[in-house]
Amino acid sequence: MAIVPPTMSPQGASMTDSGAVRPSARSLHFVARALGALWSNRKSRVGLAILAFFILVAIFAPWLAPHSPTATNFRPYQNPNSVNWLGTTGNGQDVLSQMIYGTRVSLLVGLGAGLLATFLALLIGLIAGFRPGVVDDVLSFTTNLALVLPGLPLMIVIAAYLRSNSTWMILLVIGFTGWATGARVMRSQTATLRTRDFVTAATFSGERLFRIVFREILPNMVSLAAASFFGAATAAVIAAASLEFLGMGNPNSVSWGSILYWAENDNALLTGQWVLVLVPGMAIVMLALSFILINFGIDALSNPRLRER
């Protein structure tokens, strides 16, 4: 059992206190507590509600969508009407059904790329912060280099070379280009934690490095990791929309960005079909907004001065 230091944050303490509980139950308890804390913040409550809405739509898409998203058996270029509530695309597909199914792709890219970027940031930040000297120098240099490389142009260039045009490629490109900001924050946090008394105590009591990193350090990084995750997810949602809009995703997949891409190709704004631009665009805005709002709550958790009184 780790020595529980008085300086540990509430999250960390709760994880070691309940040592008798099974790991799964303990992490469930932790998630519930974190959600409860976020729910008590007005802004992040709105964000959580919006995100929950999109997740439900994505899960129940087959039951919610009135038509098949890929069926092309409607009259093309229809404005909203009683059959096709949001009109039809130039290929005669139902826009509402495409919107509902498209939620899956946008959520997948946003959450997936956010997760990948956060994982890389944690990995690199933890190693760099825990191994001062050459390892830290090399990793910090890499991080700073990745930080100054221009994000969107880099993604565009890589996507242009890859030419494979798939949703997964977009997810990977965004994930692998978006980790640097998080890694820098995690590195400095790890570096300060490493010299704290409770970590020294754990080292002296003979704990292995692996256990120190995962049981002593990591619990204190949860709010940083969460903030980094939602920040990366926000950027991912916006970047994915931009890449798809440029036709660098798979234009034949059913996603919000693809609807925008085809709308631009068909000059939907000039032909009066502004719904084709407004609806997917606003959906992207709302999803990105939900991540930003949730991050407000996380900020307030980790910095008491920002709490609303």
């Binding site: 926000t234 809009f245 990105a288 907004l289 930003i292 407000f296």
Partner: peptide, 18 residues
């Protein structure tokens, strides 16, 4: 300002243009 920061810039541009 938070609301508008959630806009992909090209989307806001399209709306203004329209």
């Amino acid at each position: 300002s938070t609301f508008f920061s959630a806009f992909p810039p090209f989307f806001l541009g399209l709306l203004l243009l329209y």
